[in-house]
């Protein structure tokens, strides 16, 4: 079997003596889509933030594409251009237009040619179905539109992995669909994705593997069919019965 693109092994993380991650392990193969579900506060966001080194871990190891993420000598730029991340609150830069938001990092971080980046950025905006909104400011866009710009902004760095942290949680039901559609298309194109979500229907359809976390550990995991119909652990069952 080939080496997984992301290998997480027994990671631990505490914030001020409170252990948030207590030994999590998972492998994500290239092109695979995994969904992480679990109750609030179970450490899902922290897990994603560890993968792109926004949060340092206390113990364990995370290897992304052969790179140890928590090696002190790690080139963070090299890691982060490989790992894109989209947040619940979009976090677009409000003083820049949609197009500028998408272009900024490739131009200033990767120092790529501005013309090339612009062509690519326009393509990405079209891909997330926002043609015509290039010169709108984030404040002029709906939540769903902003979130799609955020996805395009991440993709502009041409990452190998995308992390999605409850990207539809702040949206109204109407606009959830358009964002999920954008993610689905990405997954179908073979993008490796780690998705934290509360959209169970979406997870069931899109995931190759579903992980259920509670209090910093993975309680249960498996392919979606088995996971959703035959959960064994009482905690998983209780969570699923509440949310479905």
């Amino acid at each position: 079997m080939t080496e997984p693109l992301i290998r997480i092994q027994d990671i631990h993380k505490s914030f001020a003596k409170v252990e948030v991650l207590s030994g999590i392990s998972m492998d994500v193969a290239k092109g695979e889509v995994v969904c992480v579900i679990g109750p609030s506060g179970s450490g899902k966001s922290t897990l994603l933030r560890c993968v792109n080194a926004l949060v340092p871990i206390d113990k364990g190891s995370i290897v992304v594409d052969g790179q140890e993420v928590h090696d002190p000598k790690l080139d963070k730029l090299a890691l982060r251009r490989k790992v894109g991340m989209v947040f619940q609150q979009y976090n677009l830069f409000p003083h820049k237009t949609a197009l500028e938001n998408v272009m900024m990092a490739p131009v200033h971080v990767l120092k790529q040619d501005k013309k090339e980046v612009e062509a690519r950025a326009r393509g990405l905006i079209k891909k997330v179905r926002l043609e015509g909104k290039e010169s709108s400011y984030p404040g002029e866009l709906s939540g769903g539109q902003q979130q799609r710009v955020a996805i395009a902004r991440s993709l502009a760095m041409q990452p190998e992995v995308m992390l999605f942290d409850e990207v539809t949680a702040a949206l109204d039901p109407e606009t959830v669909k358009e964002v999920l559609l954008a993610i689905r298309e990405l997954a179908e194109e073979g993008m490796t994705c780690m998705i934290v979500t509360h959209e169970m229907g979406f997870a069931r359809e899109i995931a190759g593997h579903v992980y259920f976390t509670d209090r910093g550990v993975i309680v249960e995991h498996g392919p979606p069919k088995e996971f959703f119909s035959g959960a064994k652990d009482p905690r998983t069952r209780q969570f699923l019965s509440q949310i479905l």
């Binding site: 982060r80 251009r81 947040f87 976090n91 830069f93 971080v109 760095m157």
Partner: peptide, 17 residues
């Protein structure tokens, strides 16, 4: 908001940038 720093960090901007 801290999200601005976080998003920029995730895009590999340096602190100065």
């Amino acid at each position: 908001p801290a999200g601005q720093w976080e998003a920029a960090d995730a895009l590999a901007f340096s602190r100065r940038q």
